[in-house]
Amino acid sequence: MEEDLPPATEKAQALLQTFSSASLLASTGIGAFCLLADHVLQLNALQHHLWLRAVLDNTVHGVIGLWSWAIVIGVRKKSDFYEVILAGILASLIDLDHFYMAGSLSLKAATSLAHRPPLHCSTFIPILCLSLRLVLWLGRLKDSWCSLPWMLFISLASHHIRDGVRHGLWVCPFGNTAPISYWLYVSITATMPHLCSVLMYLTGTREVISTKHGIAIDV
Rank of each mutant, 00 (worst) to 15 (best):
L113Y: 05
V63E: 04
L15H: 03
V186H: 02
A102V: 10
L35A: 14
V84F: 00
H61Y: 05
G88D: 01
T191P: 00
I94D: 06
C34W: 08
P179S: 07
P118L: 15
R206G: 06
V40H: 00
S21T: 13
P126T: 07
P193F: 06
N58K: 03
S20L: 07
L136A: 07
L156F: 11
S197A: 12
S197G: 08
P117M: 01
D97W: 12
L36N: 00
L52E: 06
K77G: 07
D163I: 02
G164M: 02
L136S: 04
I64H: 07
M200K: 11
C129F: 04
D95F: 06
L90F: 15
P118W: 15
A102R: 03
I85N: 02
T123R: 09
V171Q: 00
L156H: 08
A32V: 15
S187T: 14
L152M: 12
I127G: 03
P6Y: 12
A32I: 10
W145Y: 14
I180M: 14
H49M: 11
A216M: 13
L119H: 02
A45Y: 03
L105N: 07
G74K: 05
H213F: 14
G29H: 05
V198T: 08
I125Y: 02
L93H: 01
G168I: 12
P7G: 05
H194N: 01
R53M: 06
I94W: 13
L56P: 07
H39V: 01
R76G: 15
S21W: 13
D163Y: 11
G175H: 03
T177F: 02
K77I: 04
L86E: 10
K212F: 02
L132M: 15
S27Q: 00
P6R: 13
S147T: 13
V186K: 01
L119T: 09
Q17Y: 05
G31K: 13
T59Y: 04
F174Y: 12
G88P: 04
L96F: 15
C121Y: 01
R116S: 09
P117L: 09
S144N: 06
S104W: 12
H120L: 10
L119K: 02
S21A: 14
D218Y: 11
V186S: 01
L105K: 00
S106T: 05
A216D: 10
F33E: 04
P118E: 06
T18M: 10
L184C: 09
L156W: 12
R53V: 00
V198L: 11
C121N: 15
T28V: 11
V186G: 04
N176K: 14
K108A: 08
A157Y: 08
